[in-house]
Amino acid sequence: MPEITRAEVAHLANLARIDLSDDELDHLAPQLSVILESVASISGVAGDDVPPTSHALPLTNVFREDVVTPGLTPEQALSGAPAVEEQRFSVPRILGEEQ
């Protein structure tokens, strides 16, 4: 079954928006390969005729009346923010220098 390379782990970490150090990449790649090897055993267990289950119990969409209900105040909503400006979440710059 597929071995997961160091380069692949770096790519996945990039997709998941996590900076991994060289040490972490060295450490993670072989561990993930062992895990993948173990979980790969399920390939072929279920035939094409078996439907997938995303939720164990049947779900139906839940609606409610479109009326205003009490929610968080702006102060409460912002209370855990790393930075706040003019009653808004203050975030680092979104665009790069060249944009």
Binding site: V39, I42, S43, V45, A46, V50, P51, P52, T53, S54, A56
Partner: peptide
């Protein structure tokens, strides 16, 4: 996808 199918078998 395969895991979701095996989930059906377990149920």
């Amino acid at each position: 996808g395969q895991a979701q199918k095996v989930r059906t078998l377990i149920s």
